[in-house]
């Protein structure tokens, strides 16, 4: 069973160019039905039929969780990526029918928190837009600190500041501004939970600073918005199916397995949820573990792989599929 087996047919109701690199896409149910309720931090998987290739990318929902008649996501164009964001930017137009998964939340608010402290970098802002709507409605104190490279790339900065006022602080690198994590994290009331979504370096700095200041690990939450990386093509043998498949340069191992018609579980498609964990039968080469699921010991054992984001380089990889 996999979340993407139960897709929801939607129509693209709006496409908005937020800035030169970010577009917002809005979806409604094809029948006009209500879409499933969700919680802030949830993502959906969007299925793209790109000239014979079926891509499925996860995107955080940024619309209000209390809004059931449409969903919104924002997509940052990545010309060096596998082509999913490029497809969204170039091919997707209002009126187009697409399929999306039901929402999945791997980055939810801890509802016990006395205060939510949110730290966003770049496109990592999107889950927080939904979370702020949720915290606002629940009447729980929250604070957003949002950093972007430049004013021109700071999607939604103005509208968020208008909507949530003092709850929002903005920082633009090109203005010489930056978040002082040490000061920010050392001045929070007890019971605060911190959430960070953004580039890897930012997540690491926040987690390190919080740890150093003695924050309980359970109060520190982060989400890597990980897209499957591109790489060299490689061959894989699927032992149960008894077939050999080729993973293309811009294809994930998971997508190649799916394209072969071989059943495989999956959910987040971003290396975080653990659903697609697959046993390695034989490995003569190096597995590039790109996930956030397996621990160091498991990685070193070469006995497990997360096909949604991880790749292989070497002579032979055989999987228990």
């Amino acid at each position: 069973m996999s979340a993407s087996d139960h897709l929801i047919p939607v129509v693209v109701s709006n496409v908005v160019e937020v800035n030169p690199i970010i577009k917002r896409f809005e979806f409604k149910h094809v029948n006009g039905d209500e879409l499933p309720a969700f919680s802030g931090g949830a993502h959906i998987v969007v299925e793209m039929l790109d000239d014979g290739t079926k891509r499925k990318n996860p995107y955080s929902l940024m619309s209000s969780p209390f809004e059931r008649d449409q969903y919104a996501i924002s997509v940052r164009r990545d010309d060096t990526g596998r082509g999913g964001s490029k497809f969204m930017h170039e091919q997707v137009r209002p009126g187009m029918e697409m399929k999306i998964s039901a929402p999945v939340n791997l980055f939810s608010l801890d509802l016990r928190a006395k205060k939510h402290l949110m730290i966003a970098g770049g496109i990592g802002i999107t889950p927080f837009i939904a979370q702020m709507a949720q915290a606002d409605k629940l009447g729980v104190p929250f604070e957003l600190h949002y950093a972007a490279r430049s004013v021109s790339q700071a999607a939604y900065m103005d509208s968020l500041a208008d909507r949530f006022g003092d709850h929002v602080s903005c920082y633009c690198d090109d203005q010489g501004e930056g978040v002082d994590f040490e000061t920010l994290l050392s001045s929070q009331p007890l019971g605060t939970h911190v959430y960070v979504c953004g580039p890897k370096g930012m997540i690491e700095r926040v987690v390190e600073t919080a740890t150093h200041l003695g924050w309980p690990a359970a109060h520190v939450h982060f989400e890597h918005f990980l897209a499957p990386p591109v790489g060299e093509p490689f061959e894989v043998h699927l032992a149960k199916a008894g077939i050999d498949i080729t993973v293309g340069a811009e294809q994930s191992l998971l997508e190649a397995v799916e394209a072969s018609g071989t059943p495989i579980n999956c959910m987040c498609r971003g290396g975080a949820c653990g659903q697609c964990e697959t046993a390695v039968v034989a490995c003569d080469g190096e597995i590039m573990h790109n996930d956030h699921w397996l621990d160091e010991e498991q990685r070193a054992s070469k006995q497990l792989i997360m096909p949604c984001v991880s790749r292989f380089r070497g002579k032979r990889l055989e999987l228990d599929l």
Partner: peptide, 11 residues
């Protein structure tokens, strides 16, 4: 537990 943590909505 692993199964439940990733239990999808609607399924």
């Amino acid at each position: 537990l692993k199964f439940l943590l990733t239990l999808p909505q609607g399924q």
